[in-house]
Simulated scan of single mutants.
Amino acid sequence: MMLYLTTFPYQESSCIMGRRDVQIHFLTLLVLYFSVMEERNSTEETPRNNALAQRRSKSYRQSMRSCVEATHLAYTSGLLTALRIPRSRKAPKSCDITKQVDPDQVALLVKKEWQLSYVTPLYQFRHTQLKSYSKQLSAFMVSEKQQGLAIEVGQELGFKVNFSVVLGLAETDKDAETVFIQILSKQVFSAKDDAPKVVWSGWLTCVNGDLDYLRSLPLEFVSLPLFCTRGPESLTVLVKSWFENIFDCCFGPLDINSTNLQWLASLWTGCHPTINIQYLKLVWTLPTLPPMDVTYTVHPQDAWELWDSMRQVDTTEDSISIDEVTGFIKGLQSHFFRHFRIDLSAGSLMQISTALGSSHHSGKIKIASPNYIPTILQLLTECALLKMPI
């Protein structure tokens, strides 16, 4: 409840009530107040009302506790939110991921552009049933094709689906192992000995997910919130439809907002002393008529020196603070304004790219180097969890 107090200029001529009248009026209010409180107390002291009050209080506590347990990430029930901006994130560390992940599986993830989505927890999903899921999804696609569904792949004999596990990406015991999906097809006019061609790829992952959220999930649910796809949209729709029918989940688009693009720009710039990023290119969209896109390419050494100057003394080596990210982007914008008199802060950052990878506001990302896959996937996992409706 908000209490608003309004003061007015005091005017002696407007005071028409004497001191005695004020005292009587005040006593009358006190009598009315205590009479009402006495009546309320007498009503609440009955055993039946006490029992009702206790039950209501207990029910309220339980409902509030369930709401709190379901909203560890500052969600609002039924709404999509992304209000929680961490003060710091882990800085990327160069590591040979092929020591913990099969190099052939790593090659499936890197140097390809993926379209991002979020997916709610999967009900009764089991990593031990992947062969069965492969057959079920294949049968589902054949059934949908026989019903006349247009699948924009070409003239194909049929579809074969492969589910597999990418071991080694999970960083905590609560992270579910990554699941990779491939859809293969053999063209009608291909030779008999030709191998089926991969026409669609996708994977579900969770890397260093929020522990409070993961612990709050019932045992029947598996959280793989980040869904990355590559291939015809018609096949993506089919795969999502099958998952929704079998595992009682739902999908949604996962865009990468300006703040997270700034994080990625800072993370990749921070890699420069270890791995040369070769260039830093940023694309802003300015709210002009018509809208104007500004492409800003920065020399890698200049970008690194600016980033290094923004590093705070009290920041640990394995983290990057939001203040450092903001200062880095503002430094780039100030430099651009001095030369071209264009204020990039008035627009929105839409795209970033380096030799290590690229990302677009629409939810597209390409990871060109395997060295920093865990860090990037951790950021995207966090974005997916924050985007998810409750």
Score class of each variant (00 low, 15 high):
79 L>V: 02
135 K>Q: 15
97 I>D: 08
86 P>H: 13
83 L>H: 13
104 D>Q: 10
80 L>S: 01
111 K>G: 01
96 D>V: 06
136 Q>I: 07
99 K>E: 05
97 I>P: 11
110 V>M: 02
82 A>V: 03
91 A>L: 04
129 Q>K: 15
111 K>E: 01
135 K>G: 11
87 R>S: 09
86 P>N: 11
120 T>G: 01
103 P>W: 00
92 P>H: 11
104 D>F: 00
102 D>K: 10
127 H>G: 15
108 L>H: 08
94 S>F: 14
97 I>C: 08
92 P>Y: 09
119 V>G: 02
132 S>F: 13
123 Y>P: 08
125 F>Q: 10
83 L>K: 15
104 D>K: 11
121 P>W: 00
108 L>A: 09
100 Q>S: 13
112 K>M: 04
115 Q>T: 07
107 A>N: 07
126 R>H: 15
101 V>T: 06
96 D>E: 08
95 C>P: 07
83 L>P: 00
95 C>R: 15
111 K>I: 02
131 K>P: 08
96 D>S: 09
120 T>L: 02
121 P>D: 03
87 R>T: 09
116 L>S: 01
88 S>F: 13
112 K>E: 04
106 V>I: 02
79 L>T: 00
129 Q>I: 09
95 C>L: 14
114 W>E: 01
107 A>D: 07
136 Q>Y: 12
126 R>A: 15
78 G>T: 00
110 V>L: 03
115 Q>V: 04
102 D>F: 07
136 Q>K: 14
100 Q>L: 11
102 D>A: 09
108 L>M: 09
89 R>H: 07
133 Y>M: 04
123 Y>F: 05
82 A>H: 10
116 L>M: 01
107 A>S: 07
92 P>S: 09
100 Q>F: 10
107 A>M: 03
128 T>F: 12
119 V>A: 04
105 Q>Y: 11
119 V>M: 04
82 A>N: 14
106 V>H: 02
79 L>Q: 03
116 L>Q: 03
119 V>I: 04
81 T>D: 00
100 Q>W: 09
